[in-house]
């Protein structure tokens, strides 16, 4: 009898669980760690949706898109959170995503109109260095200086690709010359952001390619004001991180609700000090103390998604040739 009771209990438990809808959100690895926005976002959304929000992490943004392409229309994802502007055109071409209905007033330096992709945070790429270190004010000045930099490979890293596009947009046909001039400043090229930032903190280079918000991490989390981002005269390339609803989702309403939640104060106020990026919609309480110390680039650069792919291939070949010499 006891076994029967346990079995019945289990049956009831599973059927209750089955009634709770599950929303599967694919995201990049660092989003869903105990220091990332994941846990706070999950708790807050589950408190209001009566659902089970599951984050599934898959590498970085580019790996995320590859994963979705591998799974195709048979995938389990309802929402993807963590593609960025450099991936949008390719992502759109897959036809895997459905339009969203969310209306929001974005606090982005550029106008945002996209039926599929909804921004959740953004940032500027920048060279980060020590407060008492070298401070060139442009790529040309950097190339002329003897400051040592460590950058990421555009083929394996998002910031690396950002830098590639930054130089290309700022210098157009002269991009190859800038790279050739920068060659003697580059200590090394790493596969990803972590290695590069690690080497910079070890003192291996004066400057590292990162974000304008990086000094905020050191200031707020470590109470260390010794890092700064360098404003460049050419303007700064932007990264906008976006979320989207999968066309094949079996939870379209819930997915839509989550996308709306993304633009809410609750979600957006978590972003600055967990993802160390600017919120796409500044929450009513404003940005956390410390963010006011960050540099404000005079000009925001961003390749239009439909041109990004073509520009990228040309720029990559220029980069490879200039640095292989």
């Amino acid at each position: 009898m006891r076994h029967l009771a346990i079995a019945t209990g289990l049956f009831i438990a599973t059927s209750v669980a089955a009634e709770t809808p599950v929303l599967q959100v694919y995201t990049y690895d660092s989003f869903n760690t105990e220091w990332g926005p994941g846990p706070a976002v999950e708790a807050a959304f589950e408190a209001e949706c009566g659902c089970d929000l599951q984050f599934i992490a898959a590498g970085d943004g580019a790996a995320l898109l590859s994963r979705l392409r591998l799974e195709g229309a048979r995938g389990e994802a309802d929402v993807v959170l963590g593609l960025d502007t450099s991936l949008i055109a390719q992502a759109r071409d897959t036809g895997l995503f459905a339009p969203h209905q969310v209306q929001a007033e974005f606090d982005l330096p550029i106008a945002w109109e996209d039926p599929l992709f909804l921004p959740f945070d953004w940032g500027y790429f920048a060279f980060v260095g020590q407060v008492d270190g070298p401070a060139p004010t442009s790529f040309a000045a950097l190339a002329a200086s003897d400051a040592k930099i460590v950058i990421q490979d555009p083929r394996s890293s998002t910031p690396g690709l950002g830098l590639l596009m930054w130089v290309k947009l700022a210098y157009g046909d002269q991009a190859a010359e800038i790279w050739a001039d920068l060659a003697d400043n580059i200590v090394t090229v790493t596969p990803g952001w972590s290695e590069a930032y690690g080497l910079f903190l070890e003192g291996e280079a004066d400057l590292v390619l990162s974000y304008t918000t990086s000094p905020a991490y050191h200031l707020i989390a470590e109470d260390d004001a010794s890092k700064r981002a360098l404003p460049f005269d050419e303007g700064h390339y932007m990264q906008v991180e976006v979320a989207a609803k999968l066309a094949a989702t079996d939870q379209p309403e819930l997915a839509e609700r989550f996308l709306t939640f993304i633009t809410s104060d609750t979600f957006q106020s978590v972003i600055p000090t967990t993802n160390w990026m600017y919120p796409a919609v500044v929450p009513s309480e404003g940005l956390p103390a410390g963010f006011e110390t960050l540099i404000q680039p005079a000009k925001a650069l961003l390749a239009p998604p439909d041109q990004a792919a073509a520009l990228r291939d040309v720029a990559l070949e220029e980069w490879r040739r200039a640095l292989s010499r």
Binding site: A62, A63, L65, S66, D153, R155, S156, A183, I186, V187, T188, V189, T190, P191, E195, L199, W319, R320, L323, S324
Partner: peptide
């Protein structure tokens, strides 16, 4: 890649990486 100092030090494995995600 890290110790090779740049794209001169591209290996087949990196090319695979690029083919997949890029």
């Amino acid at each position: 890649l890290t110790l090779g100092g740049g794209p001169r030090a591209t290996t087949i494995e990196l090319a695979i990486y690029q083919a997949f995600r890029f």
